[in-house]
Design a protein around this nucleic acid. Structure first.
Length: 276
DNA sequence: AGAGCTGTTACCAA
DNA sequence: TTTGGTAACAGCTC
């Protein structure tokens, strides 16, 4: 579900909706475990009268910077979504409501209930172990290359690891590995310099493309990604993800799906040959 | 109907 | 240290 491009799209849509500078009237929590910290009642009382100063993203977290040095941090996990509208009847999967003084309500919809809210004055605690931002201009090939030597793991598992690199999930890892023509089960430190460079560039390419296309909206379920009301368009631009059985756009061979690191991986066995 | 799957992550055991 | 299994949930797919 939401990976870096999807979260970036949501942040940008919330900005376009003018959520920055809005003041919170009150909040309501209908599934207490949606609030990771503090307690649901403290969460609600702390939010009253706080203003949203800015909206940003770190890894797959949404960050609402508030007055009084508070930060509302949200991770959507598998099925979290936001809706912003006039007050209306709450859907059974809308577990958190934030009411604004301009009359609108931000509804947090999460069918699988894995999404989490954190309200804290020390956001660095949440991000302390998260890896670098792949689209940060300060993130260099040199740093990526050095990090690739720091461990010994299958690339699929390593790239999914938020402590290694922030923001990638199953879709964009598979897309990046196809783009770079590297098998997901290759061990990180076995990559040639050329392969490292190709992967570094491919990660940025697929993430940028995902953002440009407003994220990837797969399937038709209510828990599938949409930013506010709007589906993304990147599902029409995927090269391998969910394309098992289809032809590789590069070599016309058949795309396959394998299980690696307990996750489905989609690849072209001809373009992405396994070599040790 | 029922079993198996899912775009995330934390935790535990080996 | 790394991997694999499981769990947190609900709904979709076959």
């Amino acid at each position: 579900m939401p990976e870096l491009p999807e979260v970036e799209t949501i942040i940008s849509d919330l900005r376009n909706e003018g959520l920055e500078n809005q003041v919170i009237l009150k909040a309501a929590v209908h599934w207490e475990r949606s609030i990771a910290y503090p307690s649901a009642s403290e969460f609600c009382s702390y939010l009253i009268d706080k203003k949203i100063l800015s909206l940003s993203r770190r890894a797959k977290f949404l960050i609402f910077s508030l007055t009084s040095n508070l930060f509302l941090i949200v991770h959507l996990r598998m099925s979290g979504r936001f809706f912003l509208s006039k007050p209306r009847e709450r859907d059974r999967h809308e577990h958190v409501e934030i009411f604004f003084k301009d009359g609108r309500v931000l509804y947090f919809h999460d069918t699988r209930k894995f999404g989490r809210f954190y309200l804290t004055s020390s956001p660095e605690d949440i991000f302390s172990n998260i890896g670098p931002e792949p689209l940060d201009p300060a993130f260099s090939f040199k740093e990526f290359s050095q990090r690739l030597l720091s461990t010994r793991r299958k690339l699929k598992s390593l790239l999914l690891d938020q402590n290694f690199l922030a923001g990638l999930g199953n879709i964009y890892v598979d897309e990046a590995l196809w783009e770079a023509q590297i098998h997901p089960e290759r061990i990180n430190h076995s990559l040639t310099q050329e392969e490292q460079k190709a992967l570094f560039l491919a990660i940025q390419t697929v993430l940028r493309q995902g953002i440009e296309n407003g994220g990837t909206s797969l399937g038709k379920g209510k828990g599938n990604f949409k930013s506010l009301q709007n589906p993304g368009d990147n599902q029409h631009h995927l090269k391998v993800f969910k394309r098992a059985g289809g032809k590789c756009y590069r070599c016309r061979q058949k795309i396959i799906r394998i299980i690696t690191a307990s996750r489905g991986s989609h690849l072209c066995p001809y373009c992405q040959k396994f070599t040790s």
